[in-house]
């Protein structure tokens, strides 16, 4: 996270403003990265650099709500899934309120949990990592570009 932020801020990776994502996007502050990691402003810098319609959730930054999959909840397996889904209601409602169609999350625990919530609560949202999205919006120098200009990956 910090690294991606630095890359973009220091210009090591240039983003193409024309490729910015235009649909509404929200961001999940993972507990370990925001509250316990202190990296919430960096995430917002990246978000605003990558999309035109960034919508923060109602409670954010260090005050974020846990996705409901933290603390080893995801690897506890299927016996715990019902409880995991029930307690994820708060996060699901938060996401729905933003009206976003895409959610960026830098944490794999949150990623899996929110994907499950997506199905459970029918949020109709695309869940992605920064890693996935940066290659979609960057402006690569010519020598790094693939031979026959693809533009975007899937």
């Amino acid at each position: 996270m910090q690294v991606f932020h630095d890359y973009v801020k220091d210009g090591k990776i240039k983003l193409d403003p024309a490729k910015k994502i235009t649909k509404p996007v929200t961001y999940q502050d993972p507990c370990n990265i925001s509250r316990s990691g202190g990296l919430w402003e960096e995430a917002r810098y990246l978000m605003n650099a990558m999309c035109t319609d960034f919508r923060d959730m109602a409670v954010n930054r260090e005050y974020n709500h846990c996705c409901g999959g933290g603390g080893g909840y995801i690897p506890m397996g299927p016996e715990y899934k019902r409880r995991r889904m029930a307690s994820g209601k708060v996060k699901a409602e938060q996401i729905r309120e933003t009206g976003a169609e895409m959610l960026v999350v830098p944490c794999h625990n949150c990623f899996d949990q929110i994907r499950d919530l997506n199905k459970e609560y029918d949020l109709g949202i695309e869940v992605v990592h920064f890693k996935t999205i940066i290659p979609q919006v960057w402006d690569l120098p010519d020598h790094l570009k693939p031979k026959e200009e693809h533009g975007e990956t899937g």
Binding site: G37, G38, E62
Partner: peptide, 9 residues
Amino acid sequence: EMGERRGAK
């Protein structure tokens, strides 16, 4: 604890 390492208020 929350402030020094993480900058969390």
